[in-house]
């Protein structure tokens, strides 16, 4: 049945703002985004919210609901008690543009630094042959809807902007793992995962996995296997000795990091 919910919504811009109290009607089966839309249509036309599909597929409506990073479109009101006051705030790791909308350009910048898919150029159109069992690992990571909840929750950069330069964050370390495990990719991103994208900063607390709305096992299936590959490459004494003898500091397939100043 319908009831009136008490909300506290962060409103403001340019670093200035505060929690504004509202009372909004809630109907059976609704999600937080429905309630925010009702608030927007009836009491606060200019309330800034970023959203798109309202189906959990585009990853736009990321925000923090009672301090927990979530998609507003997939958070049902029935998970809260009717008399519970909901506190809705923008993602904490990224700068606020207005109200619940943050500047997530950090993520697009990181995406552009990761060396792209590098297939064998001699494979013609329609000639790729890959087994389902081999594509399945990377397919899990390609379920990512880029909501950036993992980036937002990761303690390496949450409240630590000084780590934003050396650390790409779970989403983009997972992107490296995805390409590493792609059966048709030929580049070797193990060295740069560690040296340029900060894989070593991750101490596997699994916060990213916990908030992932797509239930991707980011830590277990992407980051830990990636750490193992890096360890095998960089810290195995035999490999280390071999690299010294052959005087090849990096594997031949290691691509240059785009935009890196050296």
């Amino acid at each position: 049945m319908a009831y009136q919910a008490a909300l506290r919504v962060w409103r403001g811009d340019h670093g200035q703002g505060d929690l504004t109290p509202y009372t909004v009607e809630v109907n059976e089966g609704e999600v937080v985004l429905d309630v925010l839309h009702r608030l927007q249509a009836s009491q606060a036309n200019d309330l800034a919210i970023r959203w798109n599909c309202k189906a959990g597929k585009c990853g736009s409506c990321s925000m923090e609901i009672n301090g927990r990073p979530r998609l507003a479109c997939m958070t049902r009101m029935s998970t809260f008690a009717e008399d519970e006051v909901l506190t809705i705030t923008p993602l904490r790791t990224f700068p606020v543009i207005r109200d619940l909308v943050t500047d997530v350009s950090f993520n697009y910048a990181k995406a552009r630094q990761i060396p792209s898919f590098t297939p064998d150029p001699s494979v013609g159109l329609g000639e790729f042959r890959m087994q389902q069992v081999d594509v399945q690992r990377s397919q899990e990571f390609r379920k990512c809807i880029e909501c950036y909840l993992c980036q937002n929750v990761c303690h390496v950069i949450r409240d630590h902007p000084e780590n934003e330069r050396p650390f790409a964050g779970p989403r983009f370390l997972m992107r490296i793992a995805e390409l590493e495990m792609h059966p048709a990719d030929t580049a070797d991103r193990r060295d740069i995962a560690q040296d340029d994208f900060g894989l070593g900063y991750c101490n596997i607390t699994k916060c990213c996995t916990e908030v992932c709305p797509e239930h991707i096992k980011i830590t277990d299936n992407a980051l830990i296997p990636m750490k193992e590959r890096v360890a095998g490459r960089k810290y195995d004494p035999v490999v280390w000795l071999g690299s010294k003898i052959s005087r090849r500091p990096r594997s031949a397939g290691t691509p240059k990091v785009p935009g890196k100043q050296t």
Partner: peptide, 8 residues
Amino acid sequence: AWGALFDR
């Protein structure tokens, strides 16, 4: 060829 991974 641009990296998409369809089911096989």
